[in-house]
Design a protein around this nucleic acid. Structure first.
Lengths: 203, 203
DNA sequence: CCATGTTACTGAACGCTGTTTATATACTAA
DNA sequence: TTAGTATATAAACAGCGTTCAGTAACATGG
């Protein structure tokens, strides 16, 4: 019977319409400007209808959040085509900064804003978040093995690296780096990463 | 004429009452839970009254924001009693992490949350923020001069250092470091700083 | 084909939010 | 005592996320 299938398709279409509209509003004007009523207006349904497809506003944002992780993960994966672990580390860092500065709203949603709800964020973020972090840990370990980095707990070193790049982009995104000229921020971000990488390099 | 003076005192008292109440609510339950009506309830005035003393909710938070900067600045200043620039850098970083993890709400307000309003945040944050950053730049320069650090643009290196410590604490505060055990986070934060400082040290 | 049950949808409301405005009261100055 | 000013508030505005009773369209079994 094709009726249930069609219904499922319709349902998915509607979910997508809602998600796309939320994303459009979010990317254009940020979290604040996404309201259930605005989404409803744009898709020409009543606000209550949205609740038949998403259980809350947080649920919508959690899906956007997931899409962002997928995008970042793909971008980072490219770095791992190189065989030299140091080169991989460089590319990883560069990809991260590129993603954050190129998709500032996504980055804020994923790493800067308070997590929408504890119900969601536990398992799934672990899922792809862990995978990404494990990649980094392994790469750091390789760098240590090949003498590029001083040896220590690889998790701690990976966390350090992540902290550095997260710190760089989140200061830039939050406009805290006012001591640099507006147009120079991206360059400063990249130079910062280069400087530290150059300084920690052991061979 | 003592009347205007008394009125000014009363006015300041009222402002303080409002600010203290906002701070209490904020430190206890975070930004979300501070509403003009809750403040009004606690000080036993009507919500509208608050607007006679502060022009908006953002204005209140901007004052809290300032108080936080003052606290951080004081804590960091202690680091500068040491004459060895490397030791100063270590203490600076440690003080920063201690402040952030010891006053998470403040730290969020100051560096993580979206700035309340552009009207306020331009000049004054520059004021003490710049001072703090300049201290760091000078210290980094000293470290370079004495051979502790590889030479480069001192502003970029200072930004790198700031990014690292900001990154560490904001990942911890946002609960993104889920790969470490809850109780170990503070230790990881400190170890990360130690690892990087140990790695970038040039002599 | 009709009755029954299911699904999709919505208007109206609840209880919040920050903020504004008209109004009333209390205090000061002439 | 009167005029003027400062202080306080109730009520409302426009928005928010969310819930729920009620309606209308549709699918299905008899």
């Amino acid at each position: 019977m094709g009726i249930t299938e069609r219904r499922n398709r319709d349902r998915e279409k509607m979910r997508k319409r809602i998600l796309d509209t939320a994303m459009k509003l979010f990317l254009a004007d940020g979290y604040e400007s996404v309201s259930m009523r605005r989404i409803a207006d744009m898709i020409e349904y009543s606000p209550a209808t949205i609740y038949l497809y998403y259980k809350s506003k947080d649920a919508i944002f959690y899906e956007l959040h997931d899409i962002g992780f997928e995008k970042l993960y793909k971008k980072q994966s490219l770095a791992y085509s190189f065989k030299d672990p140091w080169k991989r580390l460089e590319k990883h860092g560069k990809a991260y900064i590129d993603f954050a500065l190129g998709n500032p709203r996504y980055y804020e949603l994923m790493f800067i804003m308070e997590a929408p709800e504890k119900d969601f964020s536990k398992k799934d973020e672990g899922d792809i978040g862990y995978r990404s972090f494990d990649f980094l840990v392994q790469n750091i370990r390789d760098c240590m093995d090949q003498g590029y980095l001083k040896k220590t707990d690889a998790s701690v070193a990976a966390f350090s690296f992540w902290s550095l790049i997260h710190g760089i982009v989140s200061l830039v995104l939050r406009g805290k780096a006012v001591m640099f000229e507006e147009g120079q921020m991206e360059a400063v971000a990249r130079d910062s990463l280069k400087y530290v990488m150059n300084s920690i390099r052991n061979k």
